[in-house]
Design a protein around this nucleic acid. Structure first.
Length: 808
DNA sequence: ATAGGGTTAG
């Protein structure tokens, strides 16, 4: 027996004794009323072990057969989670009081399965004990937690049989049961039937609506509740604030905050955490910071909320710094803290700090927490290290469907389509059911690949598993078809969707944009503005502006940029500025683009300067191009593509010494030109061609065909643009150009498909000017339609013209 | 009897 348990003679830990305390629990000491020491000892117990140490004392004093001691013992064993010990006390009792049964039932409900609890309930009935309200509330709570709707309905029935139909407590539990089982209409019906309602029942139904996605209804109920004469308490606030966050109802959120301050609930950690979360979800970072700073008491939850809130609002540097500050202030991090820190590292793409968190969570024994490990996998894939992610994945025990999804998505986002598909199959063979997340990941991977056959396969699978009803999945399908060049199919799917989300509209608008169908994109955007269910967001405007850019709609682009800022109040991001520079630059308004860059309120980033450089290359403006390149390389982009762009710009102006300089600089930095690669699908197989490659089985035939084709298109008026090549003879230059990967792929397609078949090509880089010109003529002389998807957009070649109108 | 930070999607 531990010494502190024996030192009960000090009066301080004694519970107060009231007039209703049974006499046999008291002993009399002159001038003082004290509880019997054995009872006090029981009160002080905190574990089964300590309880066993007290037991001999109780037996020695002859209290073991006292009903109250028996009940207390059972209740304590139940509290400590040991139903075996509780039964050991319960079973031998000969004359069991009803209260002993009720205590046992509570124990079962808290510690055991629903099945065991119901078994005990049946035994209790057989023994002739009448159930009390609490028996039902505990059983219903258990049903709610385990989403056991059918069993819950049975208990609801039993409760009516026993006459508790209008009991406040019982009915509140019933309302809670239906709400938890996502039967909010039933919950509401029961709530309406309640003859009188108190704060708890109002809170229950409010939380029910909030958790079932009916945010506005939840907010309505709060005012109904106040009309009913109930004052919102901290639980009401904590229940309703997530609903405010759901609908980004800042105004109502602020007024709730005001009420929290006036009523004094704001000082409660859980209330202020809910407020914090609401502000971050509404995007009010500054207010979030303020609330956090003002919090008089912070706990782990408050820290975690701020860390993740910052990460979600693009303040990942600050999020990570906050995580470190939390460690510094000796707040013990939880799994949620680790996930927040990993989230920040993912956003930053910072492998170094990501690895630091990995080491930390190994030390702190979080490696067995699946959720943390899922975030870890995601972090490594976002930092482009699928290899490390895969090793974490392989070694992880107790994978959930989320783990599989994170890994499949990781592969998909890193261009490892085959690995993603393989894992998708393995997942199913191991009996893990793919969900909407899985489908979105796989569809994204296939969109990248643009293989029609596989596109149809996953679409079919989505239909068979009823996944196509999910908005995210359906949107991914729309995006995939658009990326496969099947823009009409994408639109058909879009039109048949029952529910459309902002992202659905964005995907379709973007699809039209990349196909050069600017008019269709803008028409759709008009439709969207008429639709009440989908409000445009900042991404919508990015798609709209880039659609204008691809179609040369300069005026319209400028108009929508203005509308976005002034009418919709969206602050332009770096991507928006990039799209605007692209819009002006592509259209040849290089000076306007350059001025635009200088008038930007933020420092131009890589996307902006890259767009400027690209425009300078197209329009052969070396002077501005050099300036843009200088600013760009100061930002140190780790991509070889920009150097190649500069080199090509100099080449097209025949400035060969400068070309050589850029090449040397590239070598020094260890950057390489990404080799050009084109894919074409034929007879259920994907054929890959690299620039100048001769390893294809049909290689000889292809090159021979290209030569005759070359003669034909030259006869039709094609003039090779050999300006961009130096150091070799004219005929070799022409040969080099005609062996670009897309030409090989096109030749292969023409040779192997029937006349009239459209040829689909997928290229990893931007189509070069000469190939673009040549393909126009090829479409003319062969009478074939050729669709090329390059890294920027689609080109539909038909009758000697391209859909991009030479805007690309 | 009521709530309470969180893992994968564009």
């Amino acid at each position: 027996m531990s010494s502190n348990l024996l030192s009960v003679h000090t009066p301080s830990p004694l519970p107060n004794i009231s007039k209703t305390t049974p006499l046999y629990q008291r002993i009399y000491i002159p001038n003082h009323v004290y509880t019997h020491p054995s009872a006090i000892l029981l009160e002080l117990c905190t574990s089964v072990k300590e309880l066993h140490q007290i037991l001999p004392l109780i037996i020695k004093n002859g209290f073991y057969n006292e009903h109250l001691f028996q009940t207390k013992l059972v209740s304590l064993f139940c509290k400590f989670g040991s139903m075996v010990e509780a039964s050991r006390v319960f079973d031998p009792v000969e004359q069991k009081l009803d209260v002993l049964y009720h205590t046992m039932l509570k124990g079962y409900a808290k510690n055991s399965t629903l099945c065991d609890s119901l078994k005990f309930y049946n035994r209790m009935q057989k023994d002739g004990v009448n159930p009390v309200v609490y028996d039902f509330t505990y059983l219903l709570q258990l049903c709610g937690e385990n989403l056991e709707l059918e069993k819950g309905r049975e208990i609801h029935g039993m409760l009516i049989v026993n006459g508790f139909e209008s009991n406040l407590f019982a009915m509140t539990s019933v309302v809670n049961l239906y709400a938890k089982c996502r039967k909010i209409d039933d919950a509401c019906k029961m709530f309406d039937r309640m003859p009188c309602k108190d704060l708890v029942s109002w809170n229950t139904v409010i939380a029910g609506y909030a958790q079932n996605g009916f945010a506005r209804k939840a907010l309505w109920l709060v005012s109904d509740m106040r009309e009913d004469g109930q004052k919102a308490d901290s639980i009401t606030l904590v229940s309703v604030l997530p609903a405010v966050a759901d609908i980004k109802g800042l105004r109502i959120g602020r007024s709730i905050h005001g009420y929290a301050i006036r009523s004094g609930f704001e000082s409660m950690v859980n209330v202020s955490a809910a407020l914090l979360d609401m502000y971050f979800k509404c995007g009010l970072v500054e207010t979030g910071r303020l609330v956090f700073r003002r919090m008089s008491s912070k706990n782990v939850v408050s820290w975690n909320t701020v860390i993740d809130g910052l990460a979600q609002n693009g303040e990942s540097e600050e999020a990570f710094a906050t995580f470190l500050k939390m460690l510094d202030e000796k707040v013990e991090p939880t799994n949620v803290s680790m996930m927040g820190a990993l989230h920040a590292c993912s956003n930053l793409g910072d492998l170094e700090r990501g690895r630091f968190v990995h080491r930390l969570l190994d030390q702190m024994k979080f490696s067995s927490n699946v959720s943390v490990m899922n975030s870890l996998i995601s972090m490594y894939t976002k930092c482009k290290r699928v290899d490390i992610a895969a090793s974490v994945f392989d070694n992880l025990k107790g994978k959930t469907n989320v783990t599989w999804n994170a890994m499949i998505l990781g592969y998909a986002q890193n261009g490892c389509v085959n690995e993603a598909l393989d894992l998708f199959c393995t997942m199913q063979s191991e009996g893990v059911k793919p969900d909407s997340f899985t489908f979105v990941s796989v569809i994204t991977a296939l969109a990248d690949l643009s293989v029609t056959r596989q596109a149809k396969w996953i679409h079919g699978l989505a239909i068979r598993t009823n996944m196509d009803k999910n908005v995210f999945v359906a949107t991914a399908l729309v995006d995939m078809y658009a990326k496969c060049g099947a823009i009409e199919t994408a639109r058909e799917l879009f039109d048949t969707m029952q529910e459309r989300h902002v992202i659905t509209w964005n995907a379709m608008i973007d699809g039209y944009g990349t196909h050069g169908l600017g008019k269709a994109a803008l028409d759709l955007f008009d439709d969207m503005q008429k639709e009440a269910s989908a409000k445009p967001n900042d991404t919508t405007f990015l798609s709209v502006i880039s659609a204008c850019s691809h179609s040369g709609f300069v005026e319209e682009g400028l108009y929508y940029f203005k509308t976005m800022k002034e009418h919709y109040g969206f602050e332009p991001s770096m991507d928006h500025y990039g799209a605007m520079v692209d819009l002006l630059g592509r259209a040849g308004k290089l000076d306007d683009a350059w001025n635009f860059i200088h008038e930007m309120p933020i420092k131009p980033g890589i996307t902006v300067l890259g767009a400027m450089l690209g425009a300078c290359k197209i329009h052969k403006n070396v002077e501005l191009g050099e300036k843009a390149a200088d600013m760009l390389f100061e930002l140190d982009p780790d991509e070889g593509g920009y150097h190649v762009l500069v080199a090509n710009m100099y080449a097209s102006a025949s400035m060969w010494d400068k070309v050589a300089k850029v090449r040397t600089a590239m070598e020094k930095k260890g950057l390489h030109k990404t080799p050009g690669c084109s894919l074409v699908e034929w007879r259920n197989e994907v054929h890959t061609f690299y620039s100048g490659s001769t390893n294809h089985p049909q290689s000889k035939r292809i090159y021979a065909f290209l030569e005759t084709l070359g003669d034909e298109i030259r006869a039709a008026g094609y003039v090779p643009d050999t300006n961009s090549i130096h150091d070799v003879e004219e005929d070799v230059k022409e040969q080099l150009l005609s062996s670009h990967s897309e030409r090989l792929a096109i030749a292969f397609g023409l040779l192997n498909t029937r006349h009239g078949t459209t040829i689909h090509i997928r290229k990893n880089l931007r189509v070069c000017g000469d190939c673009h010109e040549a393909t126009k003529y090829i479409s003319l002389v062969t009478g074939r339609e050729i669709i090329v998807r390059d890294s920027q957009r689609f080109h539909h070649f038909k009758n000697g013209r391209c859909s991009c109108g030479d805007y690309w």
